[in-house]
Design a protein around this nucleic acid. Structure first.
Lengths: 180, 180
DNA sequence: TAAGTGTGTGAGTGCACACTTACAAACAAA
DNA sequence: TTTGTTTGTAAGTGTGCACTCACACACTTA
């Protein structure tokens, strides 16, 4: 036995997050994530229930990591006020722009939410993230809403590569967004 | 001659916007948009240079319509101040939630922006929309940025169907967003 | 009427890819 | 050593789909 199935599942999941983030659900063959994980395609199908199951698992892992990143951010907040914690979380989230994977996978998942299982995973993920942000920061609805609005703006900035665009309209959209 | 190629191109484009909005680039066969347009698949390929060209054309049409919708909104603004015009545009954009097509196609296009031609179309589209918003409203960078941030939040609300979710976190995210 | 031009399609072709199956090797327990 | 279980794969299978091509019909012009 080379390794346990559980360990394999974890490495496959990592590969899946990256692969699906880059090329999306329909454009990433499971051979690609199998190759990235260093195992055969057939074994991926044994470890996960089809491509859809793999994608849903990757999405769940994605939201899990986002909550972890926000928690890390909140811990190094300057103060204990809601807005201070929210700002610290925002900085932590903006740093994920370096990763790209977690940002992009959310966009990919939203795009394929005509598949009911994926839509449910997206809702569950945002439920998890949003309730965490509410509870951890103690902020009001309007503040939380603003937090997520600017988070979504990050998705546009990353997917369209607006950081690289020197024109005024792009500067306006990216102003104040931390880049690492 | 049943019709001119130009007229056909327009109806195909309408069908393409709807079809791609729902199922995205990779998951919509051009047979689907051909069927929706009431013509053969082969003729679609004669009217457009491949599936990619069709998608890019659809995306461009999408942004064109968005600018038109914002213009309509701006015209019925209460006052002439930047924020008043911006708010009126925001209401107009929120009404597009009823359409879904224009909202969703943006999400789909962003998701496939690993294809260079599509990324460029997205940038061109947002350049068009953002400069229009800037010029037409006369608002400052921060206001414009906020406008787009909440616009992107609309995309999340629509794709995840958050309007239908009665839980507090979803209410927080959707608060104040006009539904028609 | 003959030739030319624009509109339209049926019937392929080839390939990518989701998923299966038959099989093998490593390890454990008896 | 034998039997069983888990990890792993090579080699298919079937299907969906992007794109092509040969061909036909409508309409115009000389």
């Amino acid at each position: 036995m080379r390794s346990t199935a559980e360990a394999r599942r974890a490495t496959v999941l990592n590969a899946a997050v990256s692969a699906f983030a880059r090329t999306g659900f329909h454009a990433t063959p499971v051979t690609a994530v199998a190759a990235a994980a260093g195992i055969s395609e057939a074994y991926v199908f044994r470890l996960f229930s089809g491509k859809l199951g793999l994608f849903v698992a990757a999405a769940e892992a994605c939201f899990e990591r986002i909550v972890a990143a926000l928690e890390m951010g909140a811990e190094r907040a300057d103060g204990t006020g809601p807005q201070e914690i929210l700002d610290a979380m925002g900085d932590a989230y903006a740093e994920l722009i370096a990763d790209r994977d977690l940002l992009l996978l959310q966009v990919q998942a939203q795009a394929v939410s005509d598949v009911p299982e994926i839509a449910e995973a997206v809702r569950a993920g945002y439920r998890r993230v949003a309730t965490f942000v509410q509870n951890r920061s103690g902020a009001g609805d309007a503040q939380v809403q603003q937090f997520f609005a600017y988070g979504q703006l990050c998705h546009l900035i990353v997917t369209a590569g607006l950081e690289q665009v020197p024109e005024p309209w792009a500067r306006a959209l990216t102003a104040g967004i931390r880049h690492p």
